[in-house]
Design a protein around this nucleic acid. Structure first.
Lengths: 338, 338
DNA sequence: TTGAAAGCGCTAACAG
DNA sequence: CTGTTAGCGCTTTCAA
C-alpha cells in the first residue's frame, strides 16, 4: 500500500509478453484479443493494480467522456431547487452512460462571444449542456457556428445547429390565466422576472395574449419586470398593493417569486386566495409545503435535464440528423393559493 | 468561424519566431519572458484564437485542476437539498480558485476498497471531497494509506491522514432534548436513520446519553432505525402512534424524516406541537415553510462544503501540516413544531 | 532570457 | 489475432 511508481500500460504489456497495443485493445474491448491473452492480461492488471491514465487516453483518443454543464457563477447557484433539479436529470443520464459531469461556472450576463467555444477547444469536455442562458446570448451562436455539440436546457432558440429542450410556456400561462378567469378574477397582475430570459419573455408574451383573448386589460401598474428572486419579489411587490385598486390575482413567472409575493400579501393582512389569488410556475419542492400550498404550473424540470443529456449523447454519437427541438407539456397543479 | 485545424502552441511559437517553450512560459507565467516577446506572443494568441489544450497540459504537468466530489449513485441525489447545499459550498470555493468540479457517482454501500484511489490514479482529479460516506468505509482508509489528498464532508473519522469537516452532533441533540424537557415533554421518541452513517450514529449516541442525563428512559418501541427518507419515515412512523401510550415528542435525525413524521402525525389527527412535538436536524430549505414550521437543529451545511473545499486546497498546496478536524457548531432554531 | 530533447501514457492507422 | 510506428499537445529538464 506504499507509494509506488505509476504502473503503465507498458508494464502490463511487458509482464504479459505482448505489446502495449494488445493491452489497449483488451482494455477498450475493441479489436480482437485471444481469449488466453486476455486472461493473462486481466490477471496481471489485477495483480499490479493498474489503472489506465484517463488523461493520456483522452489526449490520444480525443474523447474525454465528460459533459460540461454551465451553472451561473453566483453564490448558492445550486441552492436554487430548479437548477438542482435540472442538474439531477442531466447527472442521472450522464452517469448511466459512463460520462462524468463537469460543472462550468459562467456569468449569464457577460462573457466574450467565444467563451464557451474556447472551453470546448481546451478539450475539457466532449459536449455542453447550457443552463440559465439568456435570450440571444452570442456565446450560443458561436457554439452553433463551430458545430460544437451542445444542448440548451430550458431555453428556446430556433436556429441552425441549435438543439434545445424547453417547455410549453404559452400553454402554462394560458392554463393559469383561464383558471383565474373561471374563478371570477379579472384584475390580474403579472410578475414577469427578467425578460432577458427566454422563458420570462415567453411567459410574458403569453400573458398579454391570453389576457387579450379573455378581453381583460393588462394594467401596467400591475406588471413587474426585473431580476427577481424571492427577496426582490417580496420587496418590489409592495407597490402592487399600495394603490386604491389592487389586483385580485397575481401570476408569477416562477415559484420563488410567488413565494415573495405571498409573503407580501400575508404581511398586508390580505387573505389568499380570498382577497388575492397567486399562481406560480415550475412547481419546485417547497411549493407543496408552503401555507397556503401554491397553485402552480408544473414543468417536468428533471425531465428537461434528462432529455437534454440524452440529446447531447445523440449528438456526440452522430445520431442526430435533425435539429432537436422539444417543447414539453406542462400542467396546472391546483392547490390552495388560487 | 469555420472549422479550422486545431491551433497548437507550436503554431504560436512559429509565428512569433520563438520556441514552444517560450510560449509555454508566457502562458503559465513561470520563468522569464522578455517583455517584447511576451507582447508579440500575446497578440498572436489573440489573433489565432489559441486555447491551450488542457488535457495535454494536465498529462504533462500532472495536475488537472479538478476537484472530484462524490455523490450517491441514486436517482435524484441532487434533489436532496442537503447535498445541494454542500455541493454549493464546495463549488463556490473551487471555482473561485480556478478549480473545476467533477461529479463522481458512487454507491455508499458497496464498492471495492480501492475504488476511490483507483479513480485518483486515473488522474481525473487532483483531490477528492467525499460526501455521504458511511462509517468506516474501507475506501476511505485506502485513500489515507496512499496519502491521496481528500477531505470528508460531514463525516467524522479520527485517523492519520484523514481530514474532515463535520458538525457537533452531540450538542445539537442535547439542545433538542433539553428544550423538549424544558417544555415538559418526557416521552421522547427518536428517529435515527441509518446507523451506518457517522452522523446518525453520533446523534443516536447523543440522544441516549442526554436522555440518561435527564433521567428519562429510552423506550425501545419509540426508536426507529433504517434507511429513512421522507417517504419511509412516513410509512414506518405509523407504529409510533399505534400503541396505547404514544410519545409526546419526536426527535428526528434529519429534516426529511421529520417531514414524514409530521405528515403521519397530522394524518392521525394529532396536533403539533400540542399532542406531539417534533424536532428535526439540518434546517433544510423547506423547514421554515412547512406547516407547522419545523423546529430544528441548524447546521451550517453550505459552510461545511466551503471549508471542505478550502481544506482540500490547502492539502493540494502542501499547506496542511496538521490533520484538519473541524467540528462546527450548531444551533436550535425554534419554530412551531416544538 | 531562450531553446532542444525527451518524455507524459495512451491510441490510430496500418501492416503483418 | 498481434505488433510497429507515429503521434496527441504540452511541460520538464538541462544546457546555452
Amino acid at each position: 500500500m506504499k507509494k509506488q511508481r505509476k504502473i503503465t500500460i507498458a508494464d502490463i504489456a511487458r509482464e504479459a509478453g505482448v505489446s502495449a497495443m494488445t493491452v489497449s485493445r483488451y482494455l477498450n474491448g475493441k479489436g480482437p484479443v485471444a481469449a488466453s491473452t486476455a486472461e493473462r492480461i486481466k490477471a496481471i492488471i489485477e495483480r499490479l493494480q493498474y489503472n489506465p491514465n484517463w488523461l493520456a487516453r483522452s489526449l490520444s483518443s480525443k474523447k474525454s467522456m465528460i459533459i460540461g454543464v454551465t451553472i451561473p457563477r453566483i453564490e448558492h447557484a445550486l441552492l436554487d431547487n430548479y437548477i438542482a433539479q435540472i442538474l439531477s436529470g442531466v447527472t442521472d443520464v450522464a452517469l448511466q452512460n459512463d460520462y462524468r459531469i463537469m460543472l462550468l461556472p459562467f456569468n449569464p450576463e457577460h462573457g466574450t462571444d467565444n467563451e464557451f467555444s474556447n472551453w470546448y477547444h481546451s478539450k475539457m469536455f466532449d459536449g455542453l449542456i447550457l443552463l440559465k442562458t439568456m435570450h440571444r446570448d452570442p456565446r450560443i451562436k458561436s457554439l452553433a457556428e463551430q458545430k460544437i455539440p451542445f444542448v440548451l436546457a430550458n431555453h428556446k432558440y430556433y436556429a441552425p445547429d441549435v438543439h434545445f429542450i424547453d417547455v410549453n410556456n404559452k400553454l402554462g400561462i394560458r392554463l393559469a390565466v383561464e383558471y383565474l378567469v373561471e374563478k371570477g378574477r379579472s384584475r390580474i397582475a403579472f410578475v414577469a422576472g427578467d425578460l432577458r430570459e427566454t422563458n420570462a419573455r415567453d411567459r410574458w408574451n403569453a400573458f398579454c395574449k391570453t389576457m387579450q383573448e379573455q378581453n381583460l386589460t393588462v394594467n401596467k401598474e400591475w406588471v413587474m419586470h426585473g431580476q427577481f428572486n424571492q427577496e426582490i419579489a417580496y420587496r418590489e411587490s409592495e407597490k402592487l398593493f399600495r394603490a386604491k385598486t389592487i389586483p385580485d390575482a397575481v401570476v408569477c413567472s416562477d415559484d420563488y417569486m410567488a413565494l415573495g409575493v405571498i409573503r407580501r400579501i400575508k404581511e398586508r393582512g390580505l387573505r389568499i386566495p380570498d382577497d388575492v389569488a397567486v399562481i406560480g410556475f415550475d412547481d419546485i419542492e417547497i411549493a407543496a409545503y408552503i401555507q397556503p400550498a401554491l397553485t402552480t404550473v408544473r414543468q417536468p424540470i428533471e425531465k428537461i435535464g434528462r432529455l437534454a443529456a440524452e440529446s447531447l449523447l445523440k449528438l456526440l454519437n452522430g445520431k442526430a440528423d435533425q435539429p432537436i427541438r422539444r417543447l414539453l407539456s406542462v400542467q396546472l397543479i391546483k392547490r390552495e393559493s388560487a
